[in-house]
Design a binder for these strands. Structure first.
Lengths: 250, 250
DNA sequence: CTATTGAATACGTGTGACCTTTGGGGTTGA
DNA sequence: TCAACCCCAAAGGTCACACGTATTCAATAG
């Protein structure tokens, strides 16, 4: 087998959102241009020339054009004849694109992005928990309980990494059990937020035991088909998350 | 090839009407391939060949590749060497992409899509209403009231089209006033859902007066900075929308 | 039966040319 | 003065062709 240089870039934390995709040259251009634009390095209205991009990244115009096409589909730029590639204002960005989210979380306004996503979580996850309680299969209930117990088991002794895995799996399972594709698709977003919180906010201490208990209670409520209770407890969890964010990043 | 525009085939007769603002040839390929894939015409795992696409749409491989790149950024397909362009399962689709939403709303599982989006609305809009009540500027409050009054004025006499415009403007204003970019970005989604409901479900009659009143009350609550009330009333509105959907499309 | 190796294949990339659109500036005329 | 008109250069859009390269599959040797 030939050399697989793929794993060389290191940092392979939780699978899913952090999957760096630099497939092809156009991917490399994207990996550089995307973060730059979302970080605001190019103010809205800035005009980039395809030829200039091709020269800067030492690729052919074809490759540069492919990158521009992708950026265009994310509404980060607009390509017009005789004008060039214009950077669009942030209001038009496709902020639900996982790639855009990743770029922004890695960039300058990481704080604002984290806040926006946490608010979104606070709206979606309680409703998802209620729907999960109403529709989850026994297998999904079991998985939910297992993930909650995993959180309990890793909540002490500085096993933050393992705790994070179970936390992510738990929320992902709730979203999937809601049987709503729009909710399920937010699993990656939640994973990114939780990962970001653990990495960024220097959680030196173990997670708060009340938070762990709340997760267990959500699993119980779902198992008992108590949608209202599941929703209520999940709302407490997300409100705690927002409060935590306010304390750590005012 | 010298005369590339409508040579002998002449299949471009609807050029004026079909000018769907699709920029460039790759846009036309997308406008055909995207709906086809999201409609399930190509089951997951189906392999499309770039060369084959180029031939089918009578474009160069370059153009076909650009279209594939965009589809790939939406996670509708995956392009791998030696194997071709593989259609991905629906679970991986970027269902928040406005383009994907449009395609799916125009296609076969329009019903399921409408239901998913309505559930999403029921989660997001009440929270957005609360945030709007807490943070809206006087100008935004005024605009909100104006849109609500517009709904009142057009709620009788079969002015459904005008009513729809005010309805959309109202919900869009609430989402924008929430000061959350993720919520604000759902304005288009809500607009699509409301439009779809009006067009599809044959609302022969005028909108229910209770619904109109609820909108006015939301505007009042926001103006009075009563977040809890705004959230509660908006929740009633979205629950009504879901109930309506259950009645009309069981 | 397993592992190695080789070839066919389809995407990936680069290049150079030409076409099409479009915005701007200069000209003309009322 | 100002409007309408026209012309042209600029930039993206499209194309065909060539070569690179990873990946799959099957034939082969151990």
């Amino acid at each position: 087998m030939t050399s697989q240089d793929e794993g060389a870039d290191g940092s392979e934390q939780g699978r899913g959102a952090a999957r760096t995709r630099e497939r092809g040259l156009h991917g490399r251009v994207l990996a550089s241009l995307g973060p730059a634009i979302t970080a605001g390095e190019y103010p809205p209205g800035t005009v980039l020339l395809t030829e200039e991009l091709a020269a800067r990244y030492e690729v052919s115009r074809t490759v540069a054009r492919e990158a521009v096409r992708v950026l265009e589909s994310m509404h980060l730029v607009e390509s017009r004849r005789r004008v060039g590639v214009t950077v669009l204002p942030a209001e038009q960005w496709n902020v639900y694109d996982p790639q855009v989210i990743t770029w922004r979380l890695a960039g300058a306004d990481r704080g604002r992005q984290l806040r926006s996503l946490t608010v979104l979580r606070s709206a979606v996850e309680p409703v998802a928990a209620r729907l999960a309680a109403e529709q989850a299969t026994p297998e999904e209930c079991a998985a939910l309980t297992e993930h909650a117990l995993g959180m309990v088991a890793t909540s002490r002794g500085g096993q933050l990494d393992n705790y994070l895995v179970h936390d992510i799996d738990f929320h992902r399972a709730v979203l999937r059990a809601s049987r709503n594709e729009m909710f399920a698709r937010l699993g990656d977003v939640v994973a990114a937020v939780l990962t970001g919180r653990t990495q960024h906010d220097v959680m030196f201490s173990d997670p708060r035991q009340e938070a762990v208990t709340l997760h267990v209670q959500v699993a119980e409520a779902v198992r008992e088909r108590d949608g209202a209770r599941a929703e209520r407890i999940m709302r407490t969890i997300t409100e705690d998350a927002m409060a935590e964010l306010d304390v750590l990043a005012p």
